[in-house]
């Protein structure tokens, strides 16, 4: 694969670009790295308030009787934020670096990959802190972390794939990012993050319909559930929850489909990028 070879040859540049992104992100504020924790914490507080106190939803039960809505929420929310930030960042990457793209040659994919990797660093830090909190709460997550890392690698490929496709589209149509912003909102609600998967399965999809034949209802429910799970983020989220909250191995479909989907997305993203890339310097 020529893409991989070319990117590998430019890894020095890739490292520099990631560093540059990180420095830009954290240098600006005196709080530095701590700042990146505040956003998810504020979100977690807000959602906890809304769901636990306003709606009085019970917290899901985890391993060893762990019951904490904020922890459950953060386990799903942090990787989703990674997805959203990675996609948004990628979409701006080519336009923000127009000066480079128009003046020097290098494999342009690097800009998107660097952008996503820089958000990976943030995710790793956030997940690191979260793991410490989980340990303090008595959840021994350590043996499950290697698998979590593998999932993050897969999700990274997924985000790079989407980022590659959307970044070039955004050069040709500058308003793509507005549509994507709306889509990302919907995507959050279509993923078990602020609610649990079992809640959705048992209470949203399987609402008993009076006067209907139960068999039909069961078929209907299965079919919708499959459709729901086409969204790879459902599998990712379920797996992260299983590994970190419940301390058990995920259901195998929740592992296999997201990984397969990631590779498919990456392949499509690379093709779209390659197709639209030649005119990049003149369209910017």
């Amino acid at each position: 694969m020529t893409v991989v070879a070319e990117v590998a040859r430019s890894r020095e540049l890739l490292g520099n670009l990631v560093q540059r992104e990180l420095r830009g992100k954290y240098k600006r504020s005196t709080l530095g790295w701590a700042w990146s924790m505040i956003n998810p914490l504020a979100l977690a507080l807000m959602y906890t308030f809304v769901f636990s106190f306003v709606f009085r939803a019970g917290s899901p039960v985890g391993a060893h009787g762990l019951k904490s809505f904020p922890l459950y929420l953060l386990i799903g929310l942090l990787p989703f934020n990674f997805l959203a930030n990675g996609i948004n960042g990628s979409m701006g990457a080519l336009v923000a670096n127009a000066n480079l793209v128009k003046k020097v040659y290098f494999p342009r994919e690097i800009l998107i990959i660097a952008q996503v990797l820089s958000w990976d660093v943030s995710l790793l830090i956030e997940y690191g802190v979260l793991s410490v909190v989980l340990l303090v709460m008595g959840n021994l997550v350590i043996p499950f972390l290697p698998l979590v890392l593998l999932l993050i690698v897969a999700e990274t490929l997924f985000v790079i794939g989407i980022g590659l496709a959307l970044s070039v589209l955004n050069v040709y149509f500058r308003d793509v990012q507005h549509f994507v912003a709306i889509f990302l909102q919907l995507w959050l609600y279509a993923t078990p993050i602020i609610y649990t998967y079992s809640f959705f399965r048992d209470h949203v999809l399987a609402v008993p319909v009076p006067g209907k034949v139960p068999t039909h209802h069961v078929w209907n429910h299965e079919w919708l559930l499959w459709l729901y799970k086409v969204n790879p983020m459902v599998g990712f989220s379920n797996s992260y929850h299983a590994l970190m909250y419940n301390l058990r191995f995920p259901v195998w479909t929740d592992l296999v489909w997201p990984v397969v989907a990631s590779f498919l997305t990456l392949a499509v993203g690379v093709r779209v990028f390659r197709k639209l890339e030649p005119r990049l310097a003149e369209e910017l």
Binding site: E12, L13, N16, N99, L100, V101, K102, V104, F106
Partner: peptide, 24 residues
């Protein structure tokens, strides 16, 4: 001029540009 990043310092741009041109 070259492909510089306006927000970065001259030093950072030299390194960035150098690595674009394939230098370690």
């Amino acid at each position: 001029g070259a492909g510089f990043h306006p927000e970065l310092s001259g030093r950072e741009n030299v390194y960035l540009n150098g690595s674009i041109l394939g230098l370690s």
